[in-house]
Design a protein around this nucleic acid. Structure first.
Lengths: 205, 205, 205, 205
DNA sequence: GATGAATGAGCGTTCATTCAT
DNA sequence: CATGAATGAACGCTCATTCAT
């Protein structure tokens, strides 16, 4: 839809697309993806609902682009963290901190992505998993880059999966607004518990 | 549904209910909850359409009962493991092993519960979280029972959450049939990586 | 259904039939005919719902028999009033009084017949109208029997219809429990207004 | 439905709404409200299934709007008659004539309103009665305006109810197409019998 | 007589998407 | 770019009735 057409005002087009995307995010956060009608998004954005289809393929596409956007940023951040160097601990703390902090900055976006993308049955389909795999791979690469600091027998891939699973549940807990505190202190504690546990374990040495 | 009416054959009723539940599980595993029509379940069970509604409130109720059933078993197993005593390591290995093994024994059930219940937006609603909280609490209790073996500052509740998040992603990875191997060996490796990481951490001491 | 079968205990059969009919009347009065499920009637009667079909053809038949019963009584009363002789005024007051009083004695029955039979679209079908026509005819006969007391040009048939229409709306108003009072005094006033209006209007001055 | 959305062509919208309403009226008159499927209305109107729901909340709403429309006109006519002044006899004859004539002009509409609204159990619910009460009140007002021409002890409210009940049964009889003739002469006779009966009955001798 | 499991036709409603204007 | 009227496939659920036991 967005390729091949000569837009008269590409910048304006893009701006409106983002505006609709933001409106959709608010709507999804409020009523969920399924519970939100295309008309609801239009109303939230203050436009006619037919216009949505000038900017997006279909309703799914909106969610998909929302995910892609957040995902792109996430990957860049992780790559940036890796590029910046530093200790494994710093890197893990940076990654965990980024995701947890993201919730504070854009709770709607994170909530929608968590609930409607990551926690959706559809997510487990090959297409979406590919995106997720990029994150796995990036994290796996980090662990491999610090292989000599790891116990023998540690499998970077498996650890990357476990780490992201634990991180995901922290976000889930925050999104649920019940399981975990969402103030700055609580978030810091969660982050540290995650990183420390993975790095050093919980057993009294 | 089950109140007030005197069933002539309660055992037969219950047997049929389970039979339909099994049929539904197969159908859900194949086409997802949403993708499965009530008629599909009936066909799979070899019964008439409307009979479903003699045994279940509605379509949602079927999924809910499936979840309740698995959940009830899970809680009992964990309580059994706790009651049996032993080291913290044994307990964690037992719990992780139970869930991972469950997938081998009843892949359909686990798949449906993972995909359609735990990974569903609706799951984050208060009602369902309550069930989940029982699991958190049980695990938290286990950690607390071994408090003197834990590092200082370890928060049992947070660790319980992290552990279950990591465990959940292993199951998710298995359900996705792509991220993780599902043979006995792979499962054992996953379980050990999980337990070892949490217990001892990954950093070379 | 009720013909041709040799019942072992005709009296007991009839008693139970009436019992179910009463239960159905209560249920219909509470939730309306359409809103009442066959199972509701069974529950109200304390029997299994399948048993209903031993005593009645189907759900419609229950309502029909309820109507027939009330209607039969009504016709007999009117015939009785006519047979008893007396002035036209006495007869009209007797008829109106009977129907209005019936509501006090068996509000559920009257309510159901009014709401579900007389005020039902189906009522206007030929079959049911026949029954009603009996009432018209009887009343028409009464007016004709007093033809010499009526103004010239008075058409007994038309007057009978008008009278019953006015009577019906009084019952409707009582059933609605809002338009008209339902205490003994109010009922008497309604009856007298009806009879007096018609009488002085049609009486040869 | 009509709030919040800026219609490009409100007049066209309204025209189409009325068109569908007319189609629905024809369908209801033919097969009854319950017997008419939404699809039947669409077919009768020559439009697609779902379009009905752009113009009406649901099936009930169609009937309701039909009723409201006829009711609004009726009330205006009565108020007009009252405003016009004249004798009580003229007014009653005008009111009765209007309703009876309406059947000749729009038999479908009157038939549907009579059968499906006034003679429906739902009609006796408070909401609908309120509309009807407007009619009662208006008529009551007319009688009160001519109080000095009435017999002592005449209760305008009761007489209004009786009059409308008698009028209603005339319409019912015409709708049933069996009880009463529907030619111009018969209609006139019915109207006169009604008015004369009431008038001479309640007029101060 | 009595029970309640079994049947399955039937229908209103939603809503993403298209497209004429 | 923008609008909103038009489309129609899709589906869960109810419930009167039957019938084996």
């Amino acid at each position: 839809m967005s390729e091949g057409k000569a837009r008269r005002d590409p910048a304006g087009f893009e701006a409106k697309r983002r505006e609709i995307l933001r409106a959709a995010t608010r709507a999804f956060a409020r009523k969920g993806f399924t519970g939100t009608r295309v008309g609801d998004i239009a109303k939230e954005a203050g436009i006619a609902y037919g216009l949505i289809y000038h900017y997006f393929e279909n309703k799914d596409d909106i969610l998909h682009q929302l995910f892609e956007q957040m995902w792109g940023v996430s990957l860049k951040v992780i790559e940036g963290i890796e590029a910046q160097g530093g200790s494994l601990e710093d890197k893990l703390r940076g990654i965990a901190g980024f995701f947890l902090e993201a919730w504070r900055l854009e709770p709607d976006t994170v909530e929608v992505v968590m609930k409607e993308v990551l926690r959706s049955p559809k997510f487990l389909e090959a297409d979406n998993l590919d995106a997720f795999r990029g994150l796995f791979t990036a994290l796996e690469g980090i662990f491999e880059g610090h292989r000599d600091e790891l116990r023998e027998g540690t499998q970077p891939k498996l650890i990357a999966i476990l780490f992201l699973g634990a991180l995901e549940i922290l976000l889930t807990g925050m999104v649920a607004r019940e399981l975990l505190g969402t103030d700055a202190d609580s978030i810091e504690q969660s982050r540290d518990a995650l990183v420390d546990t993975f790095l050093r374990g919980i057993a009294r040495s």
